[in-house]
Design a protein around this nucleic acid. Sequence first.
DNA 1: CGCGATTTTGAGCCATGTCAATCGGAGTGG
DNA 2: CCACTCCGATTGACATGGCTCAAAATCGCG
Lengths: 243, 243
Amino acid sequence: MAEPSSAAIAWLDIALDQAFNCLARNTGLEPSALSWLRKSAPRVEIFPKGAMLSSTGATRQLKLVVAGWAAETRVLADSRRQICALHLPGDVVTPRLSAPHGLYGVAALTKLECLDLTPALDAAERPEKASVRRALTAALTINEARRYEHIVRLGQHTAPERLIHLLFELRERLAPFGGGSPDSFRLPLTQEDLADALGLSVVHINRTLRQLRAARMLEIRFGTVTLLQPRQLQEIIAATRVS
Amino acid sequence: MAEPSSAAIAWLDIALDQAFNCLARNTGLEPSALSWLRKSAPRVEIFPKGAMLSSTGATRQLKLVVAGWAAETRVLADSRRQICALHLPGDVVTPRLSAPHGLYGVAALTKLECLDLTPALDAAERPEKASVRRALTAALTINEARRYEHIVRLGQHTAPERLIHLLFELRERLAPFGGGSPDSFRLPLTQEDLADALGLSVVHINRTLRQLRAARMLEIRFGTVTLLQPRQLQEIIAATRVS
DNA sequence: CGCGATTTTGAGCCATGTCAATCGGAGTGG
DNA sequence: CCACTCCGATTGACATGGCTCAAAATCGCG
């Protein structure tokens, strides 16, 4: 393996900073705990696009996404696929046992870089690391809350509602990154990925996007989404707010 | 409040036994830990049908269902409702903050009796209670796994598949109770409850049930489901197995 | 017996799925 | 540079599952 260039190392450092800051912001992780956590997990794992993050043992595992996107997927016997959750930089992922041929588990949707936080998770059992433990469980609670949102999306929303709702969730989650307007961000998902996440067919995803594009409400080009009329989009999903 | 009759107390004891045994079986709770847990939470709370189990504080709460059914629900602004999870005796429930008017949170679908395990949860922080802590987190992990199943149901299954799939899940979960055949069990859910859980309309639930009844595959009468042709029903959902 | 809640049924429509074909861009090998 | 292939996006025609509206029928219960 070639020695990584200094530019690559610098880039990785920036990515690590962003991911850890995002985690800290979401979970209220204290700076001292953050630096401890960062030092305790020096190894960066890299998965190629399409790889499965299979958990090797039966024990609980924990990873921090540093760069790239991952998805928790289930594949049915007749090859229908459901994406249950999306994970992007700053998120904490818990790979569980995978089926032998990678039919369910966590899949890398793009080239993926993560840190293995499993040792940190074990170390956090010790009482003096209560802050770290709280932060990690907070991160898992966030994941849980997102799954509830997803259930509501799948059970109650129409196709455009599902799509817009998901895009706004991603908008929120990506806000800490991307420098410019939060209404424009990279979306490295295939329309088929979107379909599998939202429980719709690819064809219908495509048509729904076309409608929204024709209405000049959003645009997807070169893997970048732009919400042209955030207000109007919000109105479409206004009725779907919980409360 | 009137003194409960001895018959009522005996009934409650049986219900408590069943619920705790179910919990122990699901989570591998050791007998000694079980009896400690049972002694640590002597108070039984009773909620009338339709009540919300609102969490009073911001802290994490935990309850054990002893008798009756509960549902985690989300109500949208336009009054669509999604049931995200069902909880029955032996299950552990985590009520979260509820909206002021009970629009989302955990609702009692029938008259509900539970034990408040919150103090036990706090006590389980102590290292000598590791067994209890493991059991409680195991119970929460089971809930999590069921939510994934539910996501797949909503995202990928057709109406009959969703219905049968859910009925088989309930069959499994109810097996420890009901004395006779596991293929026949009480289902105290309204068709509207089923519709809200499965993301379908009441009318369509009704029609789906009618079809299955006409095919002599199942029967629902007097709030009791009977799976008449478990094999054929299994075949209908065969393609929906994850693997 | 009467009332509200639930179940059942019909008619018609719309959202979404399926099938199939085309199109465009990114490799890749000659 | 071109031909070829593959993958993803796009589009059309058509089928259908599931929804809505509205009305009966039934059940549970005071």
